[in-house]
Amino acid sequence: MSTAICDEDNVRFFKKGNLPEPHELEAIIFSRQPAAITALLKAACVGIAGAGGLGSVVAETLARSGVGKLVIADFDSVEPSNLNRQRYSLEQLGLPKVQALAENIRGFNPFVTVVALQERITFDNAGELFHGCSIVAECLDSATEKASIVSGFLKHMPQAKIVAASGLAGLGAGAAITARKIFSRLYLVGDLISDMADGAGLFASRVGIAASMQSHIIIRLLAGEDP
């Protein structure tokens, strides 16, 4: 492949293993995003409730996009059965998921502040754990926990927008997963019916679609769009 260099081009060479100065590195990482939107994302604080198939993808996507601060809560540790869809590696088996996720994020975007909380999220503590977040993503596994934590967010975080997921199990069509605004502050991603309890399983491809849609709603909200 040949790349033409034109008059006035700014050309930088990097020696493998030698990173540029932090401010320059950050500018280059985000050179494919409009600067005004990158600034909005960097100023934001987003909460992620759960660091499994949904949460590990949402956290990675938001961190790659340059969201300045992520508060991630999950009580669980990495297990082999997570690896078919969750963004962890063999070396991370047994580590708290939030710690493993913070490590992963540092590996590609060291400019994100990650607050890693190894705690069980409940209706009562949901508001406290994610205090200061303008948007929270519900990324839990069980239907009852989803219901109770979303209720907790609605009750205890009166200013926050909530992006939840329901209906992403199995091998149904990807396009059946949609995003809708249902309450005044609640966005819901999923087909609303595909239940893990029906034995249909969980696949990286379909869970990933839902997680990417959650991430995309959050990025659009932070950029000032009304999704």
Binding site: G53, L54, C139, D141, S142, A165, A169, L188, M196
Partner: peptide
């Protein structure tokens, strides 16, 4: 407004 959640994540 009612949401009835199903499991999976």
């Amino acid at each position: 407004e009612i949401v009835s959640f199903v499991g999976g994540g």
